[in-house]
Design a protein around this nucleic acid. Structure first.
Lengths: 251, 251
DNA sequence: TGAACTATCTTTCATAATGAGTCATAACTA
DNA sequence: TAGTTATGACTCATTATGAAAGATAGTTCA
């Protein structure tokens, strides 16, 4: 095996799990301990990994997580996101909560002059270089994995803000209202609802009838729902009775 | 076999797997080692492949990321960042401002249990999946391109925070103090200085003697500087006189 | 806490692999 | 045919590798 090929493999293995033990590399790559040590030393010197006792950890942005998110978006989510983005008109101040569907909505917000408020790191990273969008990030404790800021600081920051529209996702919808799985997030989302003129819920049809840990708000708080045509007639009626406009996309 | 045909085959084989060992080419192409070497040398000179020890790698997609990753920050920044990260001990609450060097510092913060406060989107994205780091984002208006949150909201959010250490970068350092090019950012950075027990400045040696648009703070506000050995003795003396500890890395 | 133990690291050395250069010869071209 | 270019075998210098020994840093247990 060639030197660079071996080093590339080492880098790849390291990136996958964030950290690798030297022994594992010896076993997987099939070179001697000395050689692996020297390779790690080299990769450290060029700043690609960080040498630690017994192994090494990957430095640099792991692509994996971002890619995983992107591929996860189903056709339903894509379509819902697109329609939702169409509902938003230039000049609005849009509040986007964290979630895979809202991330897709953000992706579709092209060419419109907007003010966007969000507590989602992925969304912010996505929009940060769009010249037509004025981006305001709502800080706070960043919840791992999802990259959403929440907690007291987020609520506090939101108190001084105002948005013409909130686009939010949910863990589940029943006649009792909306649910979400993270108690802290619920706090932040409630505050979002308070400061927004209009609440647009993005929820694929599988969410109807689902409950999650924390009750977020009642259906009264929601103004419109964008969903796919998998939503049953019964649920449509529940929404109508609650005075919620439903926007259905066909997939 | 004709020369061009052989070279074309070599190129093809190299492209297929990204890497190819010289011996494999000798076997598959059926020419002598010397000839293959000369061919590789030629293909390298025209930029179609990259000659490496023991073989060659194709200059397409497969290998390019490895090469590209090699050079992302200057050696000085790398070394300064590494040393700075070493100064930070587990349990600290570190405030990281936005900047390319501080981003590198963030990269090197591996394995330490820390609380990190930052107003930089790139840093936050980098650290958001590190289990050992509790991340708090300082929200505000997100300045395009750099992805740094600043403005009144950032200052406000910082008011309620406290950090054991601030790691900050700068546009320039003179005997008058620190400078930065963005007036809004300066406001936020001043507040950062106020809430941090200790200020660690990361600045490569080229920054000494440089001025920028806005005056940020005096040298009194800085506790230590991590720089490279390009810093002249004169500047070292200025820092000593200001009571600043200088940490010099050799590049 | 401190001694014994273990894992990991650093250094060193001999060996193997690779590369650069030289030269004679074969193949091709004018 | 004479001159040019390509080829393959060879030598020597350089670099990479693996093994071993001693040093250092963590861990365990009394």
């Amino acid at each position: 095996m060639i030197v660079d090929e071996r080093r590339s493999r080492i880098l790849h293995i390291t990136e996958e799990s964030g950290f690798v033990a030297l022994h594992r590399l010896v076993a997987e790559v099939g070179a001697s301990e000395s050689t692996i040590r020297r390779d790690l030393e080299y990769l450290d010197s060029v700043g690609l990994i960080q040498r630690t006792r017994g192994g090494a950890s990957f430095l640099g942005d792991s692509q994996s997580d971002f890619d995983a998110r992107r591929s996860k978006a189903s056709v339903e989510k894509q379509q819902i996101a697109r329609r939702t983005a169409e509902l938003i008109v230039a000049g609005e101040t849009v509040l986007l909560d964290g979630g895979t569907t809202t991330l897709e909505v953000a992706r579709h917000l092209t060419g419109k002059s907007l003010q966007v408020l969000t507590n989602s790191l992925p969304i912010a990273s996505l929009l940060m270089n769009r010249a037509e969008i004025e981006l305001i990030f709502i800080g706070g404790y960043v919840y791992p994995k999802t990259g959403v800021a929440l907690g007291e600081q987020s609520v506090e920051a939101l108190r001084k803000m105002h948005a013409t529209r909130l686009v939010m996702s949910t863990g589940g919808v029943t006649a009792d209202g909306l649910f979400n799985s993270n108690a802290l997030l619920v706090e932040t989302e409630r505050q979002m609802i308070r400061v927004a003129d209009r609440v647009t819920l993005v929820a694929d049809s599988s969410k109807f009838g689902q409950r999650a840990l924390s009750h977020l708000c009642s259906l009264d708080d929601v103004d419109e729902i964008v969903t796919d045509n998998g939503m049953s007639g019964e649920w449509k009626k529940v929404m109508d009775d609650a005075g919620i406009r439903t926007e259905v996309v066909t997939v």
